[in-house]
Write a protein that binds this DNA or RNA. Structure first.
Lengths: 197, 197
DNA sequence: CAATGTGTATACCGTTCGGTATACTAACGC
DNA sequence: GCGTTAGTATACCGAACGGTATACACATTG
């Protein structure tokens, strides 16, 4: 009796996170009610509010958890080693494998990223998303000495590079293309011609 | 009295469309209530339901109206003349100028396009969006005789081309870059290197 | 001048919204 | 054992949700 009870209790927080992520990703943050999440997780509202305080807090917990994984992987991938093509390739592969591994989360993240700027979802995701821009922007900034013609445009490059990766990931998540190393190579090659020409 | 009354009546439908577009674009379809739209338009709910039948019907009317403009412009822009670079350039310019002219609508359209596949918004926009893919896909299909190495990949090209345009438009709508002819030229150039290499 | 049909408002429907006050259960530290 | 604390459920809050039944105002048509 003791162990069963305890195990269930420990799982509740995780179960809520998991079910909420599924529902938000499938139908959207605003369209999913708190009660529905509770039903899916097999708990009641006070339990949810005990752990997350609010619906917004629950969304932020979901984002924080999954983005941490991405953050860790990106930090080592975006470590500029003096070879820009290699670094971009590594970053692209990191994104593709992450999106393949957590497709439900990545779908949610993409939806929130393009959501209206005044929406709850956008405001929650932009905080977690800033580090991606800064990280990629630094890659281009550090590459300026080798590629002088990029000076002053590192921000544009970071944004379009990330935008292109997300375009491919969007296609991949809809089953239109496999998010493999070969696709990463192709994407990076396409991007670089735009830069260097 | 007669004319005033009549003019107001004629305007109500348009006012509802206009205010709903603004609200949906700013805060998202699900986050905006029908009552709020009515308040903004200065009418009451029965009036709205008289014209559009449902909240979903209102959204579809908004999309239909604005997409028609895009459809007309794209039809002439995507008329393949045997010169692929030129056609792509024309399409890019058409998209950029349309997005510049109707930024509020384009923001909504982008948000709905990336919304969860089971959401009301996505289902409403995908109907209107299909023609864009087909139109651009046909451009690549018609260009196959001149560019044999593209055979069998026209669908991928259409999707990534449109994805790239939307990436740039997203940046433009946030004021990070002007959506002018020069940017269109740069985007098309970057895209083609990926194709031809 | 009646009949009609369009457009609009008042008032309301049942349901669900996000969120909470209260109390009970059970494991933990003393 | 005994208080404390975390976790959970019952039951409920006021507000807002999408949508509608009814009635009325009015220009149009016979």
């Amino acid at each position: 009796m003791y162990t069963v009870r305890y195990t269930n209790a420990m799982d509740n927080r995780g179960t809520i996170l998991e079910q909420a992520l599924n529902l938000f990703s499938e139908r959207g943050y605003d369209a999913v009610g708190v009660q529905e999440i509770c039903d899916a997780a097999g708990i009641t509202k006070p339990t949810l509010y005990h752990y997350f305080g609010s619906k917004r807090g629950l969304l932020e917990a979901i984002l924080e958890q999954s983005f941490n994984t991405l953050k860790i992987r990106l930090t080592s991938a975006a470590d500029y080693c003096g070879d820009l093509p290699l670094t971009l390739q590594t970053i692209a592969e990191t994104y593709f494998s992450f999106a393949s591994e957590f497709p439900v989360f990545y779908r949610l993240q993409l939806a929130l990223w393009f959501a209206p700027q005044e929406s709850e979802g956008f405001k929650a995701v932009i905080i977690q998303n800033r580090f991606q821009h800064e990280m990629i922007m630094n890659v281009f900034l550090n590459a300026v000495p080798q590629h002088g013609n990029m000076r002053g445009r590192h921000q544009d490059y970071a944004l379009t590079f990330l935008g292109m990766l997300n375009t491919y990931i969007g296609l991949g998540l809809n089953g239109l293309t496999p998010l493999d190393v070969e696709l990463a190579r192709q994407a990076v090659r396409q991007f670089q011609y735009g830069i260097y020409s």
